[in-house]
Amino acid sequence: MQNSDLLINIGRFLVLVVVQILLFNHINFLGYVNPYPYIIFILVFPFTGNKSLLIFLGFLLGLSVDIFSDSGGVHAAACVFLAYIRPLLLKFSFGVSYEFNTIKLSKADFGARITYVSVAVVLHHLALFSLEIFNISHILLVLKSTLFSSIFTIVLLLCITLLFSRKN
């Protein structure tokens, strides 16, 4: 990782955590639907970057959000999980050859981008809500929360990637 990349990632990490805890945790759309767009950090982490580092950073990211929202280790677990399966997701949505091209999320094909973001968000949210609710008798609640929050997050993430994609 180059120096500028490092700075960008640190900055992104801090900004995302702050925005998540101060803004997105308090949206409460329809009473309880909150988006969790901070996971974009894991999604746009350089595709060729170190995998163990990403898992560790995912843990830190989730733990920071956890500390602020008093949720034990729920976000940390979901983020570590997402960071762990990211290579699989990349292979699934961009084809096997993703490692050889220096592909960037903002430049990728729109369909592939949607697949990648949606699958990642749904898996992350499913892990998140199963752990948060942690009760098999409330399985419907888990699925409902996952569905609504996922839609919200996916829309937000697609907007964010469009907004911050550099044309060059």
């Binding site: 733990l63 956890d66 280790g73």
Partner: peptide
């Protein structure tokens, strides 16, 4: 790390 976070959960 997963086990740690599960433990916290």
């Amino acid at each position: 790390l997963f086990v740690i976070s599960l433990g916290l959960t």
